[in-house]
């Protein structure tokens, strides 16, 4: 029943460093992303090819989304958010390839991403408003709400990590259980559903991060 194990395993260890299959899969996903991006952006021109057009449309949509939510120059956060979206999205879909495990079905991975989101919120907040200005947003609308702000900082980060993890793990588990019970063809619709859920979860993760960053902005209006 080794093939049905949805949980990460250590593949090899270098001293105290344990390399799990999650990390290896992530490397594969990264290699795929880099290859794709390189092949597309290698020959950009003023007159775009089809792939370039798609890419530009994606980036312009991203730019517009960020501009709607964040009162800042979109290109300040586009690289980080974009990377989050791309990495989570590709990782969520990696489990569809037989023999690979979904990296985001590992709580360690989602925790790492949640930590990145958490630190990104504070880094952007501090770098755009200064440390004092950023900290002042915690007293809004009154000082009484400060403890709740602090609790929310932690809970929402945990929620980010667990939400993604739970969705992905459930998808994988459903597929495996169905495969065990009813055979080869029945899980296919669920796999299609899994694709949609994967993309939606990636989007949600990025958007929530964006909203948290925006929440760190002390808007005067």
């Amino acid at each position: 029943m080794k093939i049905f194990n949805v949980f990460p395993e250590t593949i090899f260890s270098i001293g105290p460093v344990h390399i799990t299959d999650t990390v290896i899969t992530t490397w594969l996903v990264m290699a795929l992303i880099i290859t794709l991006c390189y092949s597309v952006t290698r020959k950009l021109s003023i007159k775009p090819s089809f792939f370039q057009e798609v890419l530009e449309a994606i980036f312009e949509a991203m730019e517009k989304t960020i501009k709607d939510i964040l009162p800042l120059d979109p290109w300040l956060v586009v690289p980080m958010l974009g990377t989050l979206w791309i990495l989570i999205g590709f990782s969520n879909l990696a489990g569809l390839i037989p023999g690979l495990k979904t990296p985001t079905a590992d709580l360690n991975t989602t925790c790492a991403f949640a930590l990145i989101s958490f630190s990104m919120t504070h880094v952007v907040g501090i770098s755009t408003q200064g440390l004092k200005g950023y900290l002042l947003h915690y007293k809004e609308p009154t000082w009484i709400l400060l403890p709740f702000h602090l609790i929310a900082e932690i809970t929402r980060t945990v929620a980010l990590a667990v939400r993604l993890f739970g969705n992905m793990l459930s998808g994988d588990m459903i597929a495996i259980i169905l495969l065990g019970i009813v055979g080869l063809l029945v899980p296919i619709p669920f796999s299609l559903l899994h694709i949609i859920i994967g993309l939606i979860q990636a989007y949600i993760f990025g958007i929530l991060t964006l909203v948290f960053i925006a929440g760190g902005m002390r808007t005067k209006s």
Binding site: H18, I19, M30, I34, I86, P103, F113
Partner: peptide
């Protein structure tokens, strides 16, 4: 697995830099 978390963060940073 703290190593995994660390690796994933490093992965993200590397990917961010390359992208």
């Amino acid at each position: 697995n703290l190593w995994t978390i660390l690796f994933q963060v490093i992965n993200f940073v590397i990917l961010l830099y390359i992208l």
